[in-house]
Design a binder for these strands. Structure first.
Length: 358
DNA sequence: AAGGCGGGGAC
DNA sequence: GTCCCAGCCTT
């Protein structure tokens, strides 16, 4: 008998019998639209071609996952805010870099209300070092919106989640699946790579990938299935040098690790990015980090160029600093120094129009 | 469709 | 050194 870790993890998962094959054949995926937010009606006929059948893939995946699964702190919760914080931190950031920062951030901001009240500067100060500092601002703005429009509780509908600042298609579904245990497929870089390589053996368009991911989810096991898929992509079907010998889908893989990588150019699979060293991004990061370290006093204008890493190019430093101010990541103080947008620390008032936290 | 956005670990 | 990561947003 195949063990089913999903039933151990997912309190609401029904103890049902067999995985049911649903959905449309792979050849029809492209014209299935729009992406359904819930399971479409079960069609009469068996549909997915043999290599893409969910049933053939679920048993090996569960067996593999029972021993290979990663123990990660955000897998211990179903709180939607805690899930959102994890997913926001994990955006383009490796798991190993998020783990040591996750719990300490949640201790400081245990719910949307606390982040809304604290203000952008405080959230940013707790974020510095994780990278992509805009995410901290977006998370804080989302917290304000959740307090103002949703009574301080994140909505469970992906389409509503997606309207929140910084919450796109992936994050909305990730919250729906990992907090509310929806039976949807999440497509990040790991899953996107896995689908392209193992399931279809060719690059996938956005909608194809999303529909296919949805169809593979065994009913009632969305949480465990997606966590297992992420683990399989991250640990076995890696971007470089995949461990095909250790893969539970080796017998059914449409690629098998030789020849051109079908994941190249497929949806959610990252493209090359510009060099970081010497970029504006690098200077921006230095300025925000230095502002966080300087506290309310801020960075003296005379130090900007040196702090940004361009001692011989103050014009560039000022331009980049102006951009950070424009985006709300930094602010000029009355003294003419550059600081985080609001004083970090307790005792701030709520933004005008915000309701009191519960 | 393409480019900007952090930073650190793997190679 | 280069590459890439539980993406999102703007142009």
């Amino acid at each position: 008998m195949v063990t089913d870790p999903g039933l151990l993890e997912s309190g609401s998962a029904p103890a049902h019998a067999a995985v049911v094959v649903r959905g449309a054949p792979a050849e029809q995926l492209a014209r299935t639209s729009p992406v359904p937010m819930s399971r479409p009606p079960t069609p009469a006929a068996p549909v997915l071609a043999a290599p893409t059948r969910s049933e053939a893939r679920s048993a090996p995946l569960w067996s593999w996952w029972a021993t290979a699964r990663r123990a990660l702190p955000w897998r211990e919760t179903r709180d939607p805010w805690e899930v959102l914080v994890a997913e926001m931190m994990l955006t383009q950031t490796q798991v190993a870099r998020v783990v040591p920062r996750y719990r300490s951030f949640l201790e400081r901001f245990p719910d949307p209300a606390s982040a809304a009240v604290a203000g952008p500067g405080a959230v940013l100060a707790a974020w510095v070092g994780l990278g992509y500092n805009r995410r901290a601002l977006q998370l804080q703005r989302t917290a304000v919106r959740v307090v103002e429009e949703h009574g301080g509780v994140l909505p469970r509908d992906p389409s509503q989640l997606e309207r929140l600042p910084g919450v796109g298609a992936y994050l909305a579904r990730a919250v729906a699946v990992f907090a509310f245990e929806a039976d949807l497929g999440v497509v990040d870089t790991n899953v996107g790579r896995l689908l392209a390589r193992a399931v279809v053996g060719r690059p996938l368009r956005r909608r194809e990938a999303q529909v296919l991911a949805d169809q593979l989810v065994p009913r009632g096991k969305g949480w465990a299935w997606n966590q297992a898929m992420l683990d399989l992509g991250a640990l076995v079907c890696r971007r470089r040098s995949p461990h095909c010998n250790a893969c539970p889908w080796q017998a059914d893989c449409r690629w098998a690790g030789s020849g051109p990588d079908p994941a190249a150019g497929s949806f959610a699979v990252g493209a090359r990015q510009a060099p970081f060293a010497g970029s504006d991004r690098q200077g921006r990061g230095r300025l925000v980090r230095a502002a966080a370290a300087a506290g309310p006093a801020g960075i003296a204008a005379a130090d900007l160029a040196r702090v940004a890493g361009w001692p011989d190019d103050p014009t560039r430093a000022e331009r980049v600093a102006a951009g950070l101010v424009e985006e709300g990541l930094l602010a000029w103080t009355p003294a003419g120094t550059l600081a985080l947008p609001v004083p970090a620390g307790p005792g701030r008032e709520l933004p005008r129009g915000a309701s009191a936290p519960r």
